[in-house]
Design a protein around this nucleic acid. Structure first.
Ligand SMILES: [Mn+2]
Ligand SMILES: [Mn+2]
Ligand SMILES: [Zn+2]
Ligand SMILES: [Zn+2]
Lengths: 141, 141
DNA sequence: TCAATAGTTTAGAGCGATTCTAAAGTTAAG
DNA sequence: CTTAACTTTAGAATCGCTCTAAACTATTGA
């Protein structure tokens, strides 16, 4: 049901976000939103587009990822100080991060229980709570 | 007790880490380890050294922070995809991060209870669990 | 005390991810 | 259509950080 009319679906999302459905945005949007949840870097998405024969500049990939994030179609995940990951899962959730290969995996929000969270310091509000479970992959047997 | 003989204390730490107690390492070590827990960026520590009249190159600040981290005198905290923070608190603990001004504050490890953590995927081991409570500072009244 | 050696510092070049600029190309309106 | 608003893009610029290799310094053991 959520997989039908994929073309129209991405188109609608863009329209609702007030973004003109350009060739580039439609192509990137389809790569991101059709199929399951994804965690991508700009570089990786750009490469994927190239391979799919979609001509988009890296600058546009960055622009688009930021516009999608701004429109709440994506969120950023900070796990590595040298790359930014964009996440198509915008629900509250957490992550496994395999430091060896940079892979990110979702942990559903209700799979982890956080208790006794101290209250935010005066003058501040909690914007989000991120749990990152850092993993090291064991050498394959 | 932990604040006495500050000079000798830093000196001893360096010796125990197998690092020659050079003028630069001693100066940076004292700035980092005397007084309470700190969260610094290389840039900020470099500036602080300059202001204290200690001449150290930025490259040496980076080298030193990494060597200290390697020696378990510091740990890195990833909260911002554009800067690396180094933390003098090497106990298990978590952080408040005020996104507006880049301030980091500790949350003691036992102040948060994490329950139902899913088990690590096959072939991986948990290296660390980081909880980052992202805050937005409310405009001052 | 004083080499000789191993380890350290540093200026400056280099790198990689990301952002910026401003000119050319598109889309939406009317 | 025509026009105005928005978008894309190549390439330059930025920025945090790392690398290189030459100049220093701490350590060692005659
Ligand atoms: Mn960004
Ligand atoms: Mn590092
Ligand atoms: Zn995710
Ligand atoms: Zn800390």
């Amino acid at each position: 049901m959520t997989q039908e009319r994929p073309y129209a679906q991405t188109l609608t999302r863009l329209r609702e976000a007030g973004l003109r459905p350009t060739r580039q945005r439609l192509a990137l949007g389809r790569m991101l939103f059709e199929g399951g949840d994804r965690h991508v870097t700009a570089e990786a998405l750009h490469e994927e587009a190239q391979k799919a024969g979609v001509s988009v500049s890296l600058a546009t990939v960055y622009n688009t990822l930021h516009q999608f994030t701004e429109a709440d179609l994506l969120r950023e995940v900070v796990v590595d100080s040298s790359r930014t990951y964009f996440d198509t899962n915008i629900d509250d959730h957490h992550h496994f991060f395999i430091e060896n290969d940079g892979a990110l995996m979702d942990i559903a929000g209700d799979e982890i229980t956080i208790a006794n969270l101290p209250k935010a310091p005066d003058g501040t509000d909690i914007a989000r709570v991120d749990v990152i479970v850092r993993l090291h992959s064991r050498p394959r047997s």
